[in-house]
């Protein structure tokens, strides 16, 4: 069973690397979104520094949303999703493999790229560790909540937009606690505040690790009957 799980994960990573350009495309999108912000609101450094954590988080959310519809859609179109549902690997674990693959190809590269973009937005270096840690803790939640939307909209034409609409409300706690950790470090609050939002973020992530696969598998079963 674990061999099937790893095989599926490796297959997804390989597909992402060869067709989707791996994490490169996600990082490029991230860069473009962040580059658009100073053009939109003006280049004042202190203003950019103030909104940098929030902007980086929103960019992370957007790039996560944009890649959701490919999670199951491609497999649904070529029929391999039917094979996956009939295989011995429980559908919940299939979803876990998909979500982990999504995190490794979109979430993780962005976390690595975040300090560079933080420098471009004039973010104080003191806030980097908290911001990166929060992104590392919160990004899995984005993938594991995202699979719910992807599972619900599989087989719907133009399902990507709908999936974003369905999932975005679920992302709000992740956004709030993720930005909270970086903001607290930025404002020089005592460590307790940053630690509090990090702990809450971790709680949301842990809950999503359970809710996401179960709900997405139920959604897939409903959609593929």
């Amino acid at each position: 069973m674990s061999r099937a799980f790893i095989a599926l994960l490796v297959r997804d990573l390989r597909l992402a690397a060869r067709i989707g350009g791996g994490g490169g495309m996600a990082v490029f999108f991230f860069l473009v979104v962040v580059a658009a912000v100073p053009l939109g609101i003006g280049p004042a450094p202190d203003l950019l520094a103030r909104i940098a954590p929030g902007m980086l988080w929103v960019a992370l959310l957007l790039s996560s949303l944009l890649t959701l519809d490919r999670l199951f859609q491609a497999d649904h179109e070529d029929g391999s999703l039917d094979l996956l549902t009939m295989g011995r690997l429980p559908l919940e674990l299939v979803v876990v493999a998909k979500a982990v693959g999504h995190f490794l190809t979109t979430g993780l590269p962005l976390v690595v790229a975040a300090p560079l973009l933080g420098l471009m937005l004039n973010l104080e270096v003191a806030a980097f560790p908290a911001l990166m840690l929060a992104m590392l803790v919160g990004a899995p939640a984005l993938s594991f909540l995202g699979v719910i939307g992807a599972g619900l909209t599989v087989g719907i034409r133009r399902g990507g937009l709908l999936a974003s609409l369905l999932v975005l409300p679920f992302y709000i706690p992740v956004l709030i606690f993720g930005v909270g950790a970086a903001r607290a470090a930025l404002a020089g609050f005592p460590d307790g505040v940053a630690a509090q939002s990090l702990a809450l973020l971790a709680a949301v992530t842990l809950a999503s690790l359970v809710i996401g696969p179960v709900a997405a598998a139920a959604a897939l079963r409903a959609n593929l009957r």
């Binding site: 719910i148 619900l152 369905l166 409300p169 679920f170 709000i172 706690p173 709030i176 606690f177 909270g180 939002s197 809450l200 949301v204 809950a207 809710i211 709900a215 139920a218 959604a219 079963r221 409903a222 959609n223 009957r225």
Partner: peptide
């Protein structure tokens, strides 16, 4: 079936969202 799954996930999430917004 799909809408029911969504409604239930939403019901789990509503208290979390509410709490996070208050925070």
């Amino acid at each position: 079936r799909a809408a029911a799954v969504l409604a239930l996930v939403g019901a789990i999430n509503v208290p979390i969202i509410r709490y996070s917004v208050v925070w």
